[in-house]
């Protein structure tokens, strides 16, 4: 599956630059030690905007749950229908979720709660994004 190309912006550029380097980084408020994803201008807990840093993650997580997409608005993904779309909880903080197509897992054969490991996948314009593979 080739995802649409991604053009990073100031707020999320470190996330995408790290992805190109094969690293998963998540925004963290160093004032109150709280992770944030998607990135935001200020901490949603302490309100601090000056202490948002990027923190490297282990790249390990678990599958929260999933759906199987049969009718997709994104033109470039339609030829791959149906496909899995799972929410991944990071091991460092299960409150942080990331989407995944779970490459290699047949549609609707997703092990809910199963362990996953991050990989990095090139989108249509070469920008890499995190994806997740089931750990067997």
């Amino acid at each position: 599956m080739v995802k649409q190309g991604v053009v990073p912006e100031d707020l999320n550029r470190p996330f995408f630059e790290a992805a190109n380097e094969g690293r998963l980084v998540i925004q963290n408020c160093s004032a109150c030690d709280r992770l944030h994803f998607p990135p935001r201008a200020a901490c949603d807990r302490c309100g601090s905007g000056d202490n948002m840093e990027w923190k490297q993650m282990s790249g390990r997580g678990k599958i929260y749950n999933y759906g199987v997409v049969y009718d997709c608005p994104v033109a470039s993904l339609k030829e791959d229908l149906p496909f899995n779309l799972a929410a991944i909880m990071l091991d460092e903080d299960p409150g942080i979720l990331m989407y995944s197509h779970l490459p290699g897992v047949p549609a609707d054969e997703v092990p809910v709660g199963g362990a996953v490991q991050v990989i990095f996948e090139a989108t249509a314009n070469g920008q890499k994004v995190p994806e997740w593979q089931v750990v067997t």
Partner: peptide
């Protein structure tokens, strides 16, 4: 949804 590229903020 039909475009080749999307902004980073939309992507995530």
């Amino acid at each position: 949804s039909a475009s080749d590229e999307v902004p980073g903020s939309f992507a995530i």
